[in-house]
Simulated scan of single mutants.
Amino acid sequence: MSPPKVNLAGKEPLQTVSDEPLPEKGDGLEFPAVINVETDRRVQSHRRDCKRQRARRIICGISLVIIVAVAALGTMALVHRLRKHHRRHMSCRYGKGRLPENVDVDEMNKLIKVQHDRDEASQANAMEMLHEYNRQMVAYKDVDKKVCYIDRLDETFEEGYERWESYEKNDRTDKRTLKVISKPIEVDVMRHVMDVHITAHCSDSKSVWVMEIEEKEVTSEMEVIYV
């Protein structure tokens, strides 16, 4: 049996490939546009922001230092003032003979009590003075005569404290002339008007109202005391 014969001349000629570009897909994505980055502007803006933040931090830091300093000074002043008021006892001298006076402070009840002994040289009687700042009253008790001379106060507790404290450095030279203007005050009136502290202070003495006058106003008919 003879092998099959192949006719080489019978092959179809090869198709030529066209040079035309392939058609684009209808639903394909377009190539992204080129983004231009403005690098210089961003750098400059970043620098400006950094400068603003640095300036803001400096201002905040300075303000914080000032606030802390003011708070510290205020605290120191308050502590100093409270410490002064916490003093319970002071000593001073008064008059030409520089007689000693003892001053006791009761800050809780707003009381200042001043006491001096009898002085034979000046014939000054022993005196106990109670300044009652809640009632705005002061009682000068003559211990020897057993009489309380009561007048109104025209100062606050703070002013009175500073005044008596100043007498530690500078002797007390001020002198008041008081004129008796009433008969003895009844006990019930004392309790109602003067309250407990002055009532207790004057419990062993009779009490009378006085008012301050000028030395030149004194006459022989008046009953006056000098404190």
Rank of each mutant, 00 (worst) to 15 (best):
L82V: 03
A69Y: 15
H89Q: 02
R88H: 11
R81I: 02
G97D: 06
G61W: 02
A77E: 09
I62N: 15
V70K: 08
L99N: 02
C92M: 09
L73I: 12
M90H: 14
A72V: 14
G74R: 11
C92F: 04
P100K: 11
V70Y: 12
E107S: 03
I58A: 10
I62D: 07
S63W: 12
C92E: 00
V65M: 15
V79F: 12
H85W: 14
T75G: 01
R98S: 06
D106F: 08
R87L: 11
V79N: 09
S63Q: 12
I58W: 14
G61L: 09
V65K: 13
A69Q: 01
T75C: 04
V68W: 07
L99M: 12
G97F: 07
I58V: 14
I62L: 14
H80F: 14
G74E: 04
K96Q: 08
I62V: 05
G61Q: 10
I58L: 15
H86I: 14
L78S: 07
I66Y: 08
L99Q: 04
L78N: 03
R83F: 11
I58K: 15
I67R: 12
P100A: 15
E101F: 04
R81D: 07
V70S: 01
R88F: 12
H80N: 14
V65W: 10
H89Y: 00
S91N: 11
G95M: 03
M76K: 11
I62K: 10
R81T: 08
L78I: 08
K96A: 09
L82S: 05
H85P: 01
R98I: 01
V105R: 01
I67Y: 06
E101D: 00
K84E: 08
R98N: 10
I67T: 07
Y94H: 05
I62Y: 06
I66L: 09
I62H: 11
K84W: 04
S91Y: 15
E101P: 00
V105Q: 04
C60H: 13
C92S: 07
S91D: 05
R83S: 07
E107Q: 05
V79C: 10
R93V: 03
V103W: 07
V65I: 15
L73C: 13
I59N: 03
